[in-house]
Amino acid sequence: MARVGLLLRPDLCIGCRACQVACKQWNGLPAEKTRNTGTHENPPDLSANLFNRIKFIEISDNGHGIRWLFVSQRCMHCGEPACVEVCPVKAITRTEDGIVLYDREKCIACHACKEACPFRIPRYDQGGKGKIAKCHFCFERIRAGLTPACAKTCPTDAIKFGKRDELILYSKKLGYPVIYGEKELGGLGVIFALREDPKVYRLAENPQMPAHVAFWSTLLKLTLGKRGSKLLRYFV
């Protein structure tokens, strides 16, 4: 089964956040009560009710140069997902076509997955104390031959859904020198086509499972078996 992907092109993004809303609409996620904290960016963080969000990055120099970048934050659907690796109860799995799915019935709310995630993406319900919730690639839409809600709604095609290989090829054809996510972590399912260093977009450089998490995870697994990861949260 060919791996699915989302191609994100921040140079096309207009920061409208239709992706945030379409995701809520499709997934039936309630709104959060927010306040303006001196920025247009809102809500301030991902949550069990917010699977993707746009970060607003203002960059100005001392001259007249000003830039305003809009960058999506969401589960990257890693090729080698650390969350799948550490989950003690196999509540997180990776489908054949590369979607990192989760089973909320199996989830025991140990929160090891967030600690392990190189991007610290998973969030939990019950005010952050409960079970996992995150982007699931609009899994059921994909299975029904539909485009994920965020990609479908994007006014400028800054989010494009397709086969991952084809999307990478496509962005190279468009001349993007940087394909963030092409190689990282076994290749990310969410790839960014960039014309600059990913640092400019505040994307993690060389993302990896935190070393201490990897250490404890391996150790606990070796000593206590896979379910040892349950204890991971007490060590990290």
């Binding site: 997934n27 039936g28 799995t93 489908t95 799915l101 989760y102 089973d103 909320r104 019935e105 919730a133 699931h136 899994f139 059921e140 299975r143 029904a144 031959g145 539909l146």
Partner: peptide
């Protein structure tokens, strides 16, 4: 969509996994 509703039936197991949302 209508075609794939048939197809979906065969995916019960996978769907089950995300059933809280889908």
């Amino acid at each position: 969509v209508s075609l794939s509703t048939v197809f979906l039936a065969g995916l019960g197991l996978e769907l089950e996994k995300t059933k809280a949302y889908a």
